[in-house]
Write a protein that binds this DNA or RNA. Sequence first.
RNA 1: GCCCGAGUGGCGGAAUUGGUAUACGCGCACGACUUAAAAUCGUGUCUCUUACGGGAUGUGGGUUCGACCCCCACCUCGGGCACCA
Length: 859
Amino acid sequence: MKNYDHKKIEKKWQKEWEKNGVYKTLNPGKSKKMYVLDMFPYPSGVGLHVGHPRGYIGSDIYARMKRMEGYNVLHPMGYDAFGLPAEQYALQHKIHPRKAVEENVKTFKHQLSIIGMSYDWSKEVNTTDPKYYKWTQWIFLEIYNSWYDKTKNKARKIDELISIFEKSGNGKVNAVCNINTEIFNAKEWKAFSKLEKQSVLMKYRLAYEGYSEVNWCKELGTVLANDEIVTDDKGNIVSERGGYPVEKKSMRQWFMRITAYADRLISGLDNLLWSDSIKEIQKNWIGKSEGSLVKFSVKNNSEKIEVFTTRIDTIFSGTFLVIAPEHNFIQKNKSIITNYSEVEKYLEEVKNKTDEDRMNKDNKTGVELKGVSVINPATNKEMPVWVADFVLGSYGTGAVFADAHDKRDFDMAKKYNIPLSVSIKPDNDVIFERVKKLEECFEGKGILFNSGEFDGMTSDEARSKITEWLSTKNLASKTIKYKMRDAIFARQRYWGEPIPLKHDKDRLITDLKLKNLPLELPNVKSYEPIGTGESPLAGVKSWIKEGYETNTMPGWAGSSWYFLRYMDPINGKVFAAKKNIDYWNIVDMYVGGAEHATGHLLYSRFWNNFLYDMGYVPFREPFKRLKNQGMILATDGRKMSKRWNNVINPDDIVDNYGADTLRVYEMFMGPFDQSLPWSTESIIGSRRFIDKVCKLKEKTTEIKSDLELEKVLHKTIKKVTEDIESMNFNTAISSMMILVNEMEKAENVSIKDFKMFLQILAPFAPHITEELWSNLGEKKSIHKSPWPKWDKKKIVDDTIKIAVQVNGKVRGEIIISLDESEESIKNIALKEEKVIPWIEGKEIKRVIYVKGRIVNIVV
RNA sequence: GCCCGAGUGGCGGAAUUGGUAUACGCGCACGACUUAAAAUCGUGUCUCUUACGGGAUGUGGGUUCGACCCCCACCUCGGGCACCA
């Protein structure tokens, strides 16, 4: 059945490559460098399925071609092994997560090695290795000890901020921070206690302490990630494991001020060669919107309620204001709200509502704040104020003004019969419909509002003119808001990097110095939840005694900078030597799943931008080119999962068909970035292809191949080279299949030509090509041979076949020589036997010739 | 709901980006080899029509000498966000 013994051959060459260091990366120096990176895997307990290697195979092919093209290639692999699944796996199997990781890494490495990857394993990194996370901790401290200077638009050392405070206070500091800080002068600063200084600085630091709501499960005694909770049939949130109730609980956390980089994370995308869809996802995630901040004065009160809006052009028709239940206006002005008890009741209700309930768009609820009204700055008309939970405390200013243009405002008004209006220039039919309804609902209370002099303008013009006009009265200003929030950088878990900070009795925080890093995770007997919601570290006496921070870092910490560590993986003095970073520089080609668009790919850009600001790396963006491999689905079209029992293990495929077949098949299935269903039926085609290649070898001779075959060969070399460059592996393989079919048909194939073919096939099928190459007497590895060049002269055809159309329909074919004049080609076409019946006796209106493609006769 | 992307044979897909639609592979059918089967090789394989020809790239329209490709509307599927003002 088998034409060659793949098991024997593959094992033999894998050993040989290892022995000879064929894929070893050279030290910095050589001018042509190429950094080809895979997203490193999370080594789970179940090992790889056939979907996982798809991306790795693609990048491996790319790396192999680049190596043959003479580049010094950095193509490493490592493990991202901190995080929840390892902890859960360990809990389940009653072994230490470190042990579990060790075992899983072994499995992964074995599975990867039998597929024939060309990694330089001496560059391997593992995020859970203290020698690695020493530097994750160090970067954290660098971020912690920095603030964002908006004027210079870069991060700076916190020490510089302190000296500014000492000289002139914070009045002139233009920094990005979430909380409004009180203004103080130098003298006041100096008078602050240590604790006061600490809390002021915390508002500026790029990593800061704060509080946030978490999913707290009392029965499990632990905080749960969103992945670990589900909604039961009654609509309550419960733990996935056990189905215990889950409630919201405020917890002390650490945050990363990623919002400081929001603009740069958008603009930085411009120069990246990434798919538009990933760029789009990131832009939407950051959610930049430009608008205006409008002040509504509260009647009989000195207060003003600020509203963020992108539609200030609709302000003339704003008839009421809605604020979020979390808005601090309510608590500050209890006394003037005449129906406060009713309001309080509503706030209580909202608090107990599940998120799902709150997000039910069709059921708007709210309560009017009686006794309170505000003045519309554009019309000077009095407006009632409502509180409603569809307004989010966390976006904009937590307040909106309502007008009929907005569906939500309209729904609210309709439900509670609040007068609503619409500006005289409704922008589309939907709004016109609403205006009609308004008249019905409110018995004439809904009115068209004339926005006067602004009415003839385009929306954009009106927006900027109105803002300008109101700003002269200090009632509005232009502003920009983002959807993205600061990232929580803490987990109440054991299996993560310890945060290298200490809290003393007086709540003063000190940071560890580099010489004291790494702060190693203590070896504990029980890494199970301790029941308070804090991390298991809070139950370690020696840890608490030292005052160490009990939160650990989240899963994305270690993966946010690993691409830098590969450049210099065992350096103990710095995270990577400057010389290495300068040389390897930006990652030229990054391959991985699109599911990391709003996680890893954003966080690592953030960290890299920060490291750039601090002068540690010479490039702003970490990944120049990004390719997202599509998922391989199971034969049933679903995701491969143990749950569906539809997982295909690559080990079995390698065993039955060989690694080369697996590689060729996975690349041939379809476009690299497209998700495709696995088909064990179809894989045989790839195996047949390799069998045919083996058989072809028997046919090779010293005699020169004929010209036609040479032509096909050189065209194929060109096609394969270009296709690998653009990662169109499926068409590269199909063109090689065509070449093989031609070679089979040919009388004779020269050894020289066959070898060239083996070379372009080598990145796809490294084992069999190496075997045949060596059988043909080559002593050095095919993978170190220079990439073949196509001969330009051999790929031009002197005569070509083109189609002749009549009125756009193909009626015949002619063979022409390319240097023939347009005039004579047209004449040949008009005389073509099969064409004549279609044009005979008709007036020829036009004859169009597209060079080398087609002649179209219009009659 | 909003923002992306995609719809091509029985199946995975190709099409030089506006120029001969269905390459390559799987499957299927027939044939050769074989006592037989597997493997291998050969031939065929969008559809209607005996043929001449006609019709097909989710549906309907448009632009063009010419449209899978561009424009408009709709349908279906996939991805992202989701009461974001």
